[in-house]
C-alpha cells in the first residue's frame, strides 16, 4: 500500500520578476511503514513540496498541475474543512527550526492539549496523554514540564516536544522538514534513533527531508534526490547511495569524503549555480554543472529505470553508461 503518491506536481510562485517555477513535474511515493528521504540543495523546492502536500502554501504559490494522493484521495481536490481534518491527525509535521515551532506565550501543556481539540476526553486525560508522549520522546519529569513555556527548554528538547506533538495522534504520515538541521550532531543521532523507534511502534510512514546524507542513509528506506525543482533520482537507499545513476547524486557522494558515514552535516558544495527558476534554460537542468554533459543533453531527460525500482533523469542511463 502506498500512503502518499504524488504525480506530476508542478508549483509556481508569483514574483515581481515573473513566474518562479519552484516544482516541475515532481513524482514520488511513500509506501506504508517506510521512511522516504528527500535530499537536495537549499532552494531545490523541498519546503515547497511539503507545503503543497499539507496545503499550507505561501499566498503567492499556485499549484499548476498534478495530484497528491493520500491513502487514495487527492488532497489537492479536498475541501478545506476536510483537509484541515487530516492535519495533525492523519498527516503530521515537524519543522526545521525548533526555536520557532511553539507559541512562546503558551505553556507546552496548553499547546499539547489544544492540538487534541477534536477529542472529547477530559482535560486531565489530555494532559496525561501529553505527558506520556513527552516521556516517550525522552523528556524526563514530563508531567511537571508541561507547565513550562517553550523558552524554558533547550533546542533539542523543543524538537523532541515537536516530535511528541506530531506523533500524539498516531498519524499515518509524518513529514519532517530538516528536523535536526538546527541541532548539534550528538543530539541529531539521539533524535533520529528515537524517531526510528517510534515510527516502528506507531507504524507510520515518514517523509524525511534532510541536508545530511549520513542521516538519510541511517534512517531511510528510500531516497529521492531533488535538483532545482525536479526529482533527478529515486530508489532504495542502497541503490542510490551505492550505485548513483545521476551525475548530480554522484557529485554529492563524491564530495562527501567519508561516503555517507562521516559527519558531513551540510550538503557538499558543487561548483556552479542552480539555474534561475524564473527563466529556465531548455534541456537538462543540471547541464551547467555536469561533468558528463554531451550533445543529447540539450533535450530534457525523462526519468528512466537504471535498475528495478531505481530511476534517474539522465540521458546517460539510456546510453547504457552508468558509472
Amino acid at each position: 500500500m502506498t500512503v502518499l503518491d504524488i504525480q506530476g506536481l508542478s508549483v509556481s510562485y508569483g514574483t515581481p520578476r515573473g513566474e518562479l517555477r519552484a516544482l516541475r513535474d515532481v513524482s514520488l511515493s511513500v509506501p506504508e511503514r517506510k521512511i522516504v528521504g528527500i535530499v537536495g540543495e537549499s532552494g531545490c523546492g523541498k519546503s515547497t513540496l511539503i507545503s503543497a502536500i499539507i496545503r499550507l502554501m505561501a499566498p503567492n504559490a499556485r499549484v499548476r498541475s498534478g495530484t497528491v494522493r493520500f491513502n487514495g484521495q487527492d488532497l489537492l481536490a479536498l475541501p478545506e474543512a476536510r483537509m484541515r481534518g487530516l492535519r495533525g491527525t492523519e498527516i503530521s509535521m515537524v519543522f526545521q527550526d525548533p526555536m520557532q515551532t511553539h507559541n512562546p506565550v503558551l505553556t507546552v501543556g496548553r499547546q499539547m492539549i489544544d492540538i487534541q481539540y477534536r477529542d472529547k476526553r477530559s482535560k486531565a486525560d489530555k494532559l496525561k496523554r501529553a505527558a506520556e508522549m513527552l516521556a516517550l520522546v525522552g523528556i524526563p519529569d514530563a508531567r511537571a514540564r508541561l507547565n513550562q513555556y517553550p523558552f524554558e527548554f533547550s533546542g533539542g528538547m523543543r524538537q523532541r516536544i515537536a516530535i511528541a506533538m506530531a506523533l500524539m495522534a498516531r498519524p499515518s504520515l509524518l513529514i519532517a522538514d530538516e528536523p535536526t538541521t538546527a541541532l548539534d550532531a550528538t543530539l541529531e543521532v539521539q533524535i533520529i534513533k528515537r524517531l526510528r523507534e517510534l515510527q516502528d511502534e506507531i507504524g507510520c510512514s515518514i517523509l524525511f527531508i534532510s541536508h545530511h546524507l549520513g542521516v538519510i542513509a541511517e534512517l531511510c528506506d528510500e531516497v529521492v534526490v531533488m535538483y532545482a525543482g525536479e526529482v533527478v533520482e529515486a530508489g532504495s537507499v542502497r541503490d542510490v547511495f551505492h550505485h548513483p545513476a545521476h551525475p548530480y547524486t554522484r557529485a554529492l557522494l563524491e564530495c562527501d569524503p567519508g561516503h555517507i558515514k562521516e559527519k558531513t552535516r551540510n550538503l557538499p558544495t558543487i561548483p556552479g549555480n542552480i539555474p534561475d527558476l524564473v527563466s529556465l534554460p531548455g534541456g537538462c537542468i543540471f547541464a551547467d554543472r555536469c561533468p558528463q554533459r554531451h550533445d543529447a543533453c540539450t533535450e530534457h531527460p525523462v526519468m528512466s529505470e537504471a535498475s528495478a525500482g531505481h530511476r534517474a533523469a539522465c540521458h546517460l542511463i539510456k546510453a547504457g553508461a552508468p558509472a
Binding site: 499539507i54 499550507l56 484541515r84 481534518g85 487530516l86 492535519r87 495533525g88 491527525t89 503530521s92 509535521m93 519543522f95 527550526d97 520557532q100 515551532t101 511553539h102 507559541n103 512562546p104 506565550v105 503558551l106 489544544d114 492540538i115 481539540y117 477534536r118 515537536a162 506533538m165
Partner: peptide, 26 residues
Amino acid sequence: GEGHIRTARAFGLPERRVILGYALRL
C-alpha cells in the same frame, strides 16, 4: 509569518483559534 503559527495550522487548529488564541495573544 512566524513558525509557530504554521505549526498551529499544521495541527489543524481552527483558524479562529489560530488568529485569536495564538496570534493575537502575541
